[in-house]
Design a protein around this nucleic acid. Structure first.
Lengths: 188, 188
DNA sequence: CTGGCTTTACCGAACGAACGGTATAATTAA
DNA sequence: TTAATTATACCGTTCGTTCGGTAAAGCCAG
């Protein structure tokens, strides 16, 4: 067989870049093929299910990435503050300091019949669980921990949208800076 | 002349509903015509500039609505807490308690060449200014007031995205509940 | 080795459908 | 009649998708 022009990892990362930037409807096959560096027909060889399967695969790819780089460290050893800071650095990198949008945001638009909603919800819930665990270990009750974890996710998604709308990366930086105080406040 | 089937106000509100739900690329003219209750040709009579002009008009419509229902009350008389609560009620209604997405979010996806970015940024800045004014009157310095106003906007945008991704309206409600503590904390 | 066979990765060309957009005629209150 | 408004039909383009086919690497009997 001929050698792959691009590894599957690269293909998924480039698909991620297109979908997070233009959304599902906004990303045309021509645009995708151009960005990935393959012809449309080649994309259908890799993803027989077409555009839907590409987006699904990207969602799974992001989930695996998050599991490895975010959730495992969050659930790991060390004191809560250190683990949270590790997550924050990964989040900074993943969103390029606020320059890139969240795939969950861009792929969750559209009616409730949107087939991406469920995997997105699952991923977000997993993220929230891992954050709540850290808050619990810091001393919060289960209910309070969950509330604080939710605030962290709300802040991350919020700064991404506001930074994009205002075209101001500092909004993102400030938001990241506030996360420790949100999840692990000094009093209890 | 034949009577208008729908008032311009209605047309704009229905356009708003389509764009905030499906985004710009996701909203086809067929879908728009169906939702608005007009034929495509009628839409082009109302908006000769096509889909772009429709989205621009919706943005202006939202801006005018916000100016009247949100910014003016925010800048008006009465104590800061009362004015903020008035805004929160308007926000609740505008987003249908979290069921509807933010037009700024759905129309700001895509590259930086997106023509809607500027009006969106202007609208958000105006909103932030009005919020900062309230915080200032509550006793905060200009810098702190701006920071708190930013947190309010981040929270609103954040809960909208998270509520949509988790399909959980309570996220929105909880976020709205926290806004007074964010903009007008008890100390200072 | 070696030749043929299979498998795999990829591409050019084309498909019908839907896209955004535009003419032009029909309709209708003033 | 007239002018605003809507309806029908259609334009060229792009959409997502499919098909037939090419070429390179692995496999294995001779």
């Amino acid at each position: 067989m001929p050698p792959s022009k691009v590894s599957r990892e690269d293909v998924l990362n480039r698909l991620l870049a297109v979908f997070r930037r233009h959304g599902f409807e906004g990303a045309s096959l021509a645009m995708i093929a151009d960005e990935v560096g393959l012809q449309k027909a080649s994309l259908y060889h890799l993803f027989p299910g077409g555009k839907d399967e590409m987006a699904k695969a990207v969602l799974e790819h992001v989930h695996a990435f998050m599991e490895e780089k975010v959730l495992v460290p969050l659930r790991g050893e060390g004191d809560p503050a250190t683990r949270l800071h590790a997550m924050i650095e990964q989040v900074r990198a993943f969103y390029a300091d606020g320059r890139l949008s969240c795939l969950f945001d861009t792929l969750s638009v559209g009616g409730g019949d949107n087939p991406f909603r469920k995997p997105i919800g699952d991923a977000m819930n997993a993220w929230m669980d891992a954050l709540a665990l850290v808050a619990r270990e810091h001393g919060a009750t289960a209910a309070v921990a969950r509330q604080r974890a939710e605030r962290v996710l709300v802040t991350i998604q919020g700064v991404l949208v506001v930074a994009r709308c205002l075209d101001d990366l500092k909004v993102f930086s400030r938001g990241m800076h506030e996360l420790p105080a949100i999840l692990l406040p000094a009093d209890v």
